[in-house]
Design a protein around this nucleic acid. Sequence first.
DNA 1: CCAAAAGTGTTCAGCTTACACCCATGA
DNA 2: TCATGGGTGTAAGCTGAACACTTTTGG
Lengths: 237, 237
Amino acid sequence: MKKQSNIYHEHHYKDKDRHLVAVDSIIFGFDKKRLKILLIKRNFEPCRGEWSLMGGFLKKEESLDDAAARVLYTLTGLKNVYLEQLYTYGDLERDPGARVLSTAYYALIDIEKYQEQLSNKYSAKWWDINNYPNLIFDHNIMVNKALRRLRRKTRTQPIGFELLPKKFTIPQLQTLYEAIHQKKMDKRNFRKKLLSHDFLERLEEKDKRNSKKGAYLYKFNEEKYNDLVQKGYGFEI
Amino acid sequence: MKKQSNIYHEHHYKDKDRHLVAVDSIIFGFDKKRLKILLIKRNFEPCRGEWSLMGGFLKKEESLDDAAARVLYTLTGLKNVYLEQLYTYGDLERDPGARVLSTAYYALIDIEKYQEQLSNKYSAKWWDINNYPNLIFDHNIMVNKALRRLRRKTRTQPIGFELLPKKFTIPQLQTLYEAIHQKKMDKRNFRKKLLSHDFLERLEEKDKRNSKKGAYLYKFNEEKYNDLVQKGYGFEI
DNA sequence: CCAAAAGTGTTCAGCTTACACCCATGA
DNA sequence: TCATGGGTGTAAGCTGAACACTTTTGG
């Protein structure tokens, strides 16, 4: 009986098909004005020379999350980016080179903050979200899904922490929301709503890069925010 | 140069690690009263005899979606169930038997409708959502994520089409929502809100199984619903 | 002193919520 | 006839949206 169960065991793991698994990352960036995505020119066949998301293959000894981080670092030098899993694409024909599954990740980063990391020794390039080239395989579909997800998420959860510089002004934050949702918002209502939830903290510093008057800098109060989340909290912008 | 690109090609596909990939499905069921999940007793090592989600391995020649459907059919006899992808679990240690990725799917079905398909020749069993046994691996985590997703989805999208009998009464629908969200709702407000969106159509028939008076049966008007979705529409319950 | 962005309150409409009684019917 | 679940309207509070002027200061 013991013996038989071992046979069973082997049957259920050893004889199964094994698959190539890729990770592909949609990196959204914000440069204080517009929403962009980071793309790279593919340098191997098939589709060499075409534009693509940051992608690579999952290794034996790493988790999916780790693989996404490693691939991003290898291709762009970007480190410590908070990546969130989006979806796994598993159609047979999605990659013409072989049967490859792909788990897509996405992130939203502050372009300026990562500017130096993303030096020009890498061939990754920022493209405007409204004007980027056709991508290989199903990568266009991935980008669209990521955009929808980003929009949904930022309607009910504050972007910050991972996604913005530590200090930011309300007008900057509003520009970011406007870039993501592609529509103008009323600055009085925007400010009111954000400040009504208690997780923004005004500093005494001002940022005078965009105006003579200067705008107050704020930072997220992560503690207060986590408290609220605990209580099953959600806000709408 | 051509030759080199072929080497590159082989390098990028042939030499990569290959992985076991499983699909696991969280099947929510509704029996006119309470929300349940369908579980199965695992009959191979490791963890033989413990309770588990419906799971199996992805094969070479099938898509992830197809695999989820096949596995569900094999283990339960259930066919034509609309499965939605939830998340892919990729930690190294999640399955103690081997390094296995798992893409989780979930569905919500009408238990009575599938009652005959799920004959007792299968060892799957329905459990109350508030009282089910501990599951193997990370399956508890999967169920929790699926529940959260189901709740979010049903707050802004009508459950129907795939998820309910073709004909249903408003009180039945309300009971389903109450089971999913685990709270009582006001029947006047519930009815009002649902009917205000135009996608429910009242039939002349009544369902008298639950009361002497009988409740009108309704059906979804899929056309009208799709029109609304097209226009970037979302509702709240 | 003036151009340019930051900052500030109020009003109105629409939506959400709370709430109680009559109806139809089978037993 | 009565017990049971089905069906209906209204008022109050709250939330989201629209809207215009004053403040600050570098050039």
